[in-house]
């Protein structure tokens, strides 16, 4: 059987007291497009454990993570291969809904620890202060000139969704930007 290789398979996770960077590979990601006022949207919300978030820049994580991507668009993120697409398809029935598996489009980099905001702020123009961008917030923006989706989680944790082809670049950039927060000698790839 062919071995599945993640975009950051060759990236060595870094872990320090204040900062941890690691890839979370192969998460199931479903792009969902549906009229937020439709019956189907309510049914899908029910199946996913929480109503689809309609406030721009917010996400819910009752069961799967549901990230707001646009007024009629969401990104549903679940663990590796858990039949997420089937769940949504069943809930949507025959309604006018767009459901696309985009798992291979992006990989996820977890940036955790008290220094995570400082690190991301090196390359991101958004205000990442917990008062503005606390748990439950998400945003599509640029991080170090690469298009990313940022999702803030509890305890200063972030998930950075980055296009597979940009993942290597972004991981290198993160390591470089993190140099001042990591003990000497942690970053060996440069």
């Amino acid at each position: 059987m062919a071995e599945r290789l993640s975009p950051l398979a060759r990236f060595t996770p870094v872990s320090a007291d204040d900062l941890r960077i690691a890839e979370i590979p192969f998460l199931t990601q479903i792009n969902l497009r549906v009229d937020p006022k439709s019956r189907a949207a309510a049914d899908i919300g029910l199946a996913l454990g929480a109503p689809l978030p309609t406030e721009p820049g917010t996400c819910t994580s009752a069961g799967a993570d549901v990230l707001w991507m646009g007024p009629d668009e969401w990104l549903v993120v679940g663990p590796v291969g858990d039949g997420l697409e089937e769940t949504i398809r069943t809930a949507a029935g025959t309604a006018h809904v767009g459901i696309t598996d985009v798992s291979a489009q992006r990989t996820v980099v977890a940036v955790d620890g008290p220094r995570s905001r400082d690190l991301l702020a090196h390359g991101c123009a958004l205000d990442l202060h917990p008062r503005v961008f606390g748990p439950g917030r998400c945003a599509q923006t640029m991080l170090a000139r690469a298009q990313v989706v940022l999702a803030a989680r509890e305890d200063d944790g972030f998930r950075v969704f980055v296009r597979s082809s940009f993942a290597g670049y972004l991981a290198d950039w993160l390591l470089d930007a993190a140099a001042e927060y990591l003990p000497e000698g942690t970053v060996t790839s440069r």
Binding site: P56, G57, G70, P71, A125, L126, A139, Q140, T141, M142
Partner: peptide, 10 residues
Amino acid sequence: PWCGPRDEAE
């Protein structure tokens, strides 16, 4: 109108 104020580059 959806995301709030953002850089021109976006």
